[in-house]
Computed example of a mutant assay.
Amino acid sequence: MDVTSLRPSPPAPAISERPAPPGAPAPPPARPSPKLASRRWTWLLRAAIAVAAVAAGVSAWQYFKPKGLPEGFAGGNGRVEATEIDIAAKIPGRIKDVLVDEGDFVTAGQLVARMDTAVLEAQRREAEAQLRMAHIAVDTARSQVTQREAEKAAAQATVAQREADVDGAQRRFARSEDLAPRNAVPYSRLDDDRAAFLAARAAVNTARAQVAAADAALNAARAMVIGAQAAVDSTRATIERIQADIDDSQLRSPRDGRVQYRVAQPGEVLPAGGRLLNMVDLGDVYMLFFLPTAAAGRVNMGSEVRVVLDAAPQYVIPAQVSMVADVAQFTPKTVETEEERLKLMFRIKARISPDVLHAHLTKVKTGLPGMAYVRLAPGVEWPANLQVRLPEA
């Protein structure tokens, strides 16, 4: 058997690949469809736009990014932060209304929430009723003083009358005592005049005791007036305290800032000191960044700083150093060599000028990363790319 007969025969050429018969005209070249050509132009245009956008972004970044820092400057990465403030309930109670949402800008003194004050208002009405009763008690006590003063005056008049009786009885007794031995008057009259004199003198002592009693009653009445007046003052202070609690139930923003979180919702009950809102004080914005030992050691309080944010590299924001940490934040396990000491990083706080913040208050955002550049030598001129450039107010 022939082995070649077992090989597969080559495939027959396709109709389109068969050679044209001799003398036949050549077929026209194939043209792409209009739809395919349109797609190719669209992709080419998109690619050109993308390349142009990337080139523009790279050019802008190259233009705005700080070039190599000259001598006398240092820079470090940081993040813009602001002082956080918790708006909390002073006394326990139920939240009635929350008037702001997360992200809202608030001004100092703006009403942001209300607590339910029904119980406090009832307590105030009760204290006002007690105040009226205290005023009545003061008037009653003053009337008692007037009455006791009259009683004391009457007792003093009685004393004067009794003293006059004593004087007359004493004179009669003296005459009888002189005439009785000469039988001018009977001894019985002498005895009567002696008894009358002693009785009059006893009556004086009784009247004087009544004056002392009236004086004691008068002092007691005056003490009642002082006590009633103290009750008035105490009740008035209670009303003022309750009113202060009612005023504190109207929660207001302590500073200009922006609301970050609503911690509680209307209808919830908060304990004393319970947080309701969290806000950031946009008047105290700063950037924290880090510098190595060699640069941090040359930073002075109040040194000028320029802040450039990653989100807006076209702007350069002025700031000042307000704090230099006295303890390194990144410390190797052991510091034994000079090289290891140079690895220590110190935290620097650069506070943005309040005037700048006030002029652009609604545009201030916290949490943005960026770079902070500090001038270590006061006489060195800032580079052109770090000159102050602020957005329009």
Rank of each mutant, 00 (worst) to 15 (best):
T4I: 04
T4D: 13
S5Y: 08
E17F: 03
P19C: 10
L36T: 06
A37M: 14
I49M: 12
V58N: 08
A60L: 13
F64Y: 14
P66D: 13
G72T: 03
F73L: 04
G75V: 01
G76L: 03
I87P: 00
A88C: 02
A88H: 00
K90M: 09
L99C: 12
E102Y: 01
G103A: 06
A108Q: 01
M115G: 03
A129Q: 14
M133D: 15
T140H: 13
E149G: 11
A150C: 11
A160S: 14
D167A: 15
Q170R: 07
R175F: 12
S176L: 11
A184D: 09
A195H: 04
A200W: 02
R208E: 15
A209M: 10
A209K: 03
V211N: 07
A212G: 10
D215Y: 03
A216C: 05
A216P: 01
A228N: 07
I242M: 07
D247F: 00
D247Y: 00
Q250D: 07
L251S: 12
L251D: 08
R255M: 00
R262D: 05
V269W: 05
G273P: 03
G274N: 02
D281L: 00
L288I: 08
F289H: 03
A295D: 09
V305A: 10
D310C: 13
A319K: 02
A325R: 05
V327M: 07
Q329A: 15
T331V: 11
E336A: 15
E336K: 12
R347I: 05
I348H: 03
G370I: 01
Y373T: 06
R375N: 05
G379S: 06
L386N: 01
Q387R: 07
